[in-house]
């Protein structure tokens, strides 16, 4: 082969890779489901549907992939690396703002697990104005910052009325009392920290933004617009199998089975801690017995968008309600 032909072949191969690759991935039988975070109690239903065969029963070969800080399910949907994924509402809204063809097919958490922990010995926060003068932990750039700024605005407080403290993985500033209220995921870290402090005779309380009218939607199941247009049946089968898995995982009758399974994935957390986490997860995903898991709280989504617009995190209204598609699940 001459050098020119060689170069031409290489170019052709590259071009075909760039243009054909997503199509071939989409056409494959296998489905990739990218979670938002590592395998822990927050994804118990996702794992359950996989391990207990709900996906297989629906005729789907699903690979459940753990997420992490460097993962972004919405980007993977566009790149064809995943067909379904879990993303938080702020991710979805930001993606819509930039023209990403993403749709929401179910909302996993009815109550956002992102809450703030504080000591019972501190004055209780019964009203948002009680936040005044406190040192509040927020992850700058994270959605806890967005939520907290919304709460402060709602209370008519300026940023200067409180002290915002930059939060990272290390809880020491909270243990030491440098920070009064500290953001946690209620169903995971919230339990670990709460128990540790309880053991030191320093019991805690949780400050729940939804209790003060700020409903910022958390994890939801997303897929691409192309997927719901071209393969609505796959979408339907997938989301129903997934929600069926969630229902079963959170059914108190199945809790032993669910815990056995969780222990396989999350070996570092003791079983009794997993049990407590599972109980709290139940209240966040299925707060009332009559509310079906996966229900999309449209009002909360609109509020989330409004909050992000107020804080100039998106340039223009995205009309998030147009991207919400509960018809596949129900």
């Amino acid at each position: 082969m001459t050098r020119h032909r060689y170069a031409a072949a290489l170019t052709a191969a590259l071009i075909s890779f760039v243009f054909v690759a997503p199509g071939t991935l989409l056409a494959a039988d296998k489905i990739n489901y990218r979670l938002k975070w590592l395998f822990n109690t927050s994804v118990v239903g996702d794992l359950y549907a996989d391990v207990q065969g709900d996906f297989a029963d629906a005729g789907l070969a699903v690979t459940v992939k753990s997420g992490g800080p460097e993962r972004d399910a919405i980007k993977e949907l566009e790149l064809g690396q995943a067909q379904f994924g879990v993303a938080s509402a702020d991710q979805v809204i930001r993606a819509l703002d930039k023209g990403a063809p993403v749709v929401v097919i179910a909302q996993l958490f009815q109550v956002n697990p992102l809450q703030w922990i504080y000591r019972q010995s501190a004055p209780p926060i019964n009203d948002l104005s009680d936040l005044k003068g406190r040192t509040i932990g927020v992850t700058f750039g994270g959605n806890d910052e967005t939520v907290m700024r919304t709460l402060l605005a709602k209370a008519g407080l300026e940023t200067s009325d409180v002290k915002l403290f930059n939060v990272r993985y290390d809880y020491t500033p909270f243990y030491r009392g440098q920070v009064d209220i500290w953001p946690v995921y209620r169903n995971t870290q919230g339990i670990v920290i709460g128990r540790k402090m309880q053991a030191d005779d320093d019991p805690v309380r949780f400050f729940i933004p939804a209790g003060f009218g700020v409903k910022f939607v958390a994890n939801s199941v997303v897929t691409s617009r192309k997927m719901i247009q071209r393969e609505p049946d796959t979408v339907r089968r997938f989301i129903r199998a997934l929600l069926c898995g969630w229902e079963k995982a959170l059914d108190p009758d199945n809790s032993e089975k669910a815990l056995d399974m969780l222990q396989q994935y999350d070996r570092d957390t003791p079983r009794e801690l997993l049990e407590a986490q599972l109980a709290i997860t139940r209240t966040l995903v299925k707060p009332t017995p009559d509310l079906a898991i996966g229900t999309i709280d449209v009002a909360a989504w609109k509020q989330t968008e409004a909050i992000m617009r107020d804080q100039k995190q998106i340039a223009q209204p995205v009309g998030v309600e147009k991207a919400l598609h509960s018809e596949f699940a129900f």
Binding site: I15, V18, F19, A21, P22, I74, K75, E78, L79, R94, A95, D97, K98, G99, A100, P101
Partner: peptide
Amino acid sequence: YGLQLSNYV
């Protein structure tokens, strides 16, 4: 542009 990706990606 090859993959027609959105501004988000």
